[in-house]
Design a protein around this nucleic acid. Structure first.
Length: 852
RNA sequence: GGGCCGUUGGCGCAGCGGGAGCGCGUCUCCCUGACACGGAGAAGGUCACUGGUUCAAAUCCAGUACGGCCCACCA
């Protein structure tokens, strides 16, 4: 029934905040972390979406103007790569098409495949307002990008400079720091002697080919081993060039030989050293990583050149000691895995220092709350030490940099309402995808226009995302949000008030799900096999704030069983005429009062837990209430009045049954939207639970809870006795419930008999001290079938446990330090436990004495 | 190299200063009129290790070991 229900919700317009007509209603807004158009949703998305949807649905039921705004990211490199791969199959490259035609082709591709994610979200039950769906490259957002670029440019926060940047020789574009993933790779550390005789120095490198571009050797200024060489020159092997030896404090004298080859054009540190010492940068590679330096290595790929250079050096006798295997961190393109090549080039940068400072302050002074708080440290460590952000990409798919170059060398940044001067040419590069993602919380609401949505929903209420992208994305949205909204009051300039972080979805063995590991589970596959509700419940159940979520098919099956349990419980209720008609409090039985009292507690508990993003605990509370208390005890007890001739009692039961089920389904709805809606509508005859009021119910009856506790204890003890005795559960046993007259249980003899399938009268069971203290004794007529040995074993085991308990408690109470220092209630509790244990000992000893 | 987190029954986790819990799995019994995707009962843990604080430690502190994650311009 899932597809049918979703269609109904969507048609009815329930996803739009406008369904809440109360003009005073508080706004609530979550903007979706936009999935890549190229992709499909994985389990991590399913987790994130379950959380966002549950929170949105709860707020909507609470009467907020709730908006969950959907959208997608154009994902520059990823998407371009996909389309280029498609072109390659036709034997074409993007250059064959030309820029305009290529971009057109990507749009076609998006039109064809971009709808996939929307379909998946519908399958999961996401209650997003589709009418407000956005795309990072749509017209409005492009305008937002251009507006903020212009502002940053005018504020001197964007600049163009020649720098060493991360370069992917396969994607042929610059990458920002966060698009580079480091991994420990096996390489070789090669020690090379530069110069001759007395005037020589040994350097070590893992990238031997870069020596072709060396323009100096650096040593630490305080390093006495080399002080005589500083200021002199050495001959650079294989090249015939002569390079200086300089002193620079960046060099670590304790590493290797303490001497570093300096390649300013191919290493960021060396670039800085070069700048400090006025050294030239000598580029020896092209954009594909092919050696361009004239000589025998010209035309070789960097990985071919590396051993070739080592071999040449060896033949010249330049290799010192052995070439040793060396494991070190190497950067890889996060998109294609190619080893990143640091490369000197002219790129655009955002000057992040002032922006990052503001982003840090907003968290420091509490305007934005990160939960769980352990994640603050990570956030600060990144925000407080951030390099300038390289934002230009040598791609075609993305927001084109709005800067134009004049024939006379002039540069002009053009705003969204300006037209570039005639004859000027636009910068060919596009912006980093994260640039537009950073505007997402307000560009989606219409910024830079002063729209009603922007006024109502900014700052957004909440951001739900994984801790793994805290740095990338959260910090960037903070920087740009605070910057773009700086005219607002500081507390209202933030992009969101709360950042709720979740963990990674892991497999049963605790391993992170990844394509390369081959342990991914397609959420849609689970939706097909177990249902969307079961999939969502499984994820929510494992979700603790910031914690990773392990999942397995067994869990999904368990969740499916839970759905089924709800289904059958409702079926039973409806079969028996359950109704949501109001009931009079005066007519309530003790079990009614008990379940209502419990319901009230569970509502408060679940509500509070969801407020704190404690999904796992909320699910646990709901699961146990629904299954253990409602189904296993209340429904069983309800069968007595329902089957009795007492019409008034039966009617009250039908109403309480209906009420509890109604409230319970509402409470479960945010997490399990489909079944709860189906069942709730069947129960109430109304249109949808998703627009029903969120439960708020207060009813407390401690006396009823105590009575039911006694009842459950009695029933459980007798069941255990019978199980020990090998009596069949279904077998009716003659018994007399003696001694419950005058106790709270007296009124429930019928219920107890029903639960135990007892028929009067009997003999043979002595209940526990707790029940004995309440005057309860039970006699089961076992007609001489009692297994004396089994019972003796049981009694002896219980006796041993009781003695141990009594001993522990009396030891504790005999300790004066304890009785004088521990709080009175703790001491009192220990006294009660001792008394109970002693009573149990007496009972068990008595029973053992007469057992035969 | 820096930082963060974890170590509790077979597996996955909760508890975070005063009686060791949950789910799955296991064992026994049961197809009783909502549900065998179910019901009833049971077994199973000296809470990683060492030391400290406390009347009291799974829970707080320090250290050790082993995992995991994030960051990183270790030539």
């Amino acid at each position: 029934m899932e597809a049918r229900r979703y269609e109904h919700w969507e048609k009815a317009g329930y996803f739009a905040p406008e369904i809440q007509e109360n003009p005073d209603a508080e706004p609530f807004c979550i903007v979706i972390p936009p999935p890549n158009v190229t992709g499909s949703l994985h389990m991590g998305h399913a987790l994130e979406h379950t959380m966002m949807d549950a929170l949105t649905r709860r707020r909507r039921m609470q009467g907020y103007r709730a908006l969950w705004l959907p959208g997608m990211d154009h994902a520059g490199i990823a998407t371009q790569n996909n389309v280029e791969r498609e072109l390659a199959r036709e034997g074409l490259s993007r250059h064959d098409l030309g820029r305009e035609a290529f971009v057109e082709r990507v749009w076609q591709w998006k039109a064809e495949y971009g709808g996939k994610i929307g379909g998946q979200m519908r399958r999961l039950g996401d209650s997003v307002d589709w009418s407000r769906e956005r795309f990072t490259l749509d017209e409005g957002l492009s305008r937002a990008v251009q507006t903020i670029f212009k502002r940053l440019y005018d504020d001197d926060l964007i600049y163009r400079a020649e720098r060493i940047i991360n370069w992917c020789p396969r994607c042929l574009t610059a990458l920002s720091d966060i698009e580079v993933e480091h991994s420990d790779d096996e390489g070789e550390l090669v020690s090379i002697r530069y110069g001759d005789g007395g005037n020589s120095i040994v350097v070590a490198t893992t990238r031997a080919e870069t020596m072709l571009g060396d323009t100096a050797v650096a040593v630490h200024p305080g390093d006495e081993r080399y002080s005589h060489l500083i200021g002199t020159t050495v001959e650079l092997p294989l090249t015939g060039r002569t390079i200086p030896i300089v002193a620079d404090s960046h060099v670590d004298p304790s590493f290797g030989t303490g001497a570093v080859k300096v390649t300013p054009a191919h290493d960021p540190n060396d670039f800085e050293i070069g700048r400090r010492h006025g050294l030239p940068g000598l580029s020896i590679m092209d954009e594909r990583g092919v050696i361009t330096a004239p000589g025998p290595f010209q035309g070789l790929d960097r990985f071919e050149a590396r051993p070739a250079v080592v071999a040449a050096l060896r033949s010249e006798g330049r290799i010192v000691a052995e070439v040793r295997p060396y494991v070190h961190a190497v950067g890889h393109c996060s998109r294609c895995g190619t080893t990143v090549e640091p490369r000197q080039s002219l790129q655009w940068f955002v000057r992040v220092a002032p922006l990052a400072k503001a982003a840090g302050d907003a968290v420091r002074d509490g305007r934005v709350l990160i939960t769980p708080p352990e994640m603050n440290a990570r956030y600060f460590s990144w925000v407080d030490d951030m390099h300038d952000w390289c934002i230009s990409r040598q791609l075609w798919w993305g927001h084109r940099i709005p800067v134009f170059y004049g024939p006379n060398g002039d540069v002009r940044c053009v705003g969204p309402d300006e037209t570039p001067p005639e004859g000027w040419t636009q910068d060919p590069d596009v912006l980093d995808t994260w640039f537009s993602s950073a505007l997402w919380p307000f560009s989606t609401l219409g910024w830079p226009e002063d729209t009603a949505d922007l006024r109502e929903f900014y700052p957004t209420s909440l951001l739900v995302t994984g801790y793994d992208i805290l740095f990338f994305w959260v910090a960037r949205m903070m920087m740009f949000g605070l910057y773009a909204m700086r005219d607002k009051a500081p507390s209202d300039a933030v992009p969101f008030r709360v950042v709720a972080l979740h963990g990674l979805v892991r497999d049963q063995a605790g391993k992170k799900m990844s394509k390369s590991r081959g342990n991914t589970v397609d959420p849609l596959d689970w939706v097909d096999r177990f249902g969307a509700d079961a999939t969502r419940f499984t994820l929510a159940r494992g979700a603790t704030p910031g914690g990773d979520v392990p999942i397995s098919e067994e869990w999904a099956a368990g969740s499916r069983n839970f759905c089924n349990k709800l289904w059958n419980a409702t079926r039973f209720a409806l079969m028996n005429g359950a109704t949501t008609a109001p009931f009079g409090t005066g007519d309530l039985s003790t079990p009614d009062r008990w379940i209502l009292s419990r319901l009230s507690s569970v509502i408060a508990e679940v509500d509070g837990l969801l407020e704190q993003y404690e999904f796992g605990k909320a699910c646990e509370a709901l699961y146990h209430f629904a299954w253990d208390e409602f189904c296993d005890w209340y429904l069983e007890l309800a069968k007595v009045p329902l089957a009795s001739g007492d019409r008034r009692a039966a009617e009250t039961t039908r109403r309480v049954l209906g009420f509890v089920l109604d409230q319970m389904l509402r409470l479960l709805h945010p997490i399990m939207p489909f079944v709860t809606d189906e069942l709730w509508c069947a129960l109430t005859g109304e249109d949808s639970v998703m627009v029903a009021a969120w439960p708020r119910y207060e009813f407390s009856d401690p006396a009823a809870e105590a009575t039911l506790a006694s009842l459950m204890r009695l029933v459980t003890e007798i069941r255990r006795f019978r199980s020990d005795q090998g009596l069949r559960p279904g077998q009716r046993v003659p018994a007399r419930l003696a001694g419950i007259e005058g106790t709270a249980l007296a009124a429930h003899e019928d219920g107890i008999r029903a639960l135990l399938r007892l028929t009067p009268p009997g003999d043979g069971f002595a209940p526990s001290a707790a029940l004995a203290a309440e005057g309860v004794t039970v006699e089961l007529d076992l007609a001489g079938t009692i297994d004396v040995e089994a019972e003796r074993r049981r009694l002896e085991k219980d006796l041993a446990a009781a003695r141990k308990e009594a001993q522990q408690m009396s030891a504790k109470l005999g300790n004066e330090s304890f009785t004088s220092r521990a709080p009175a209630e703790v001491v009192e509790k220990s006294r009660q436990r001792l008394a109970a244990a002693e009573a149990d000992i007496a009972r068990l000893e008595g029973r053992l004495a007469t057992l035969s």
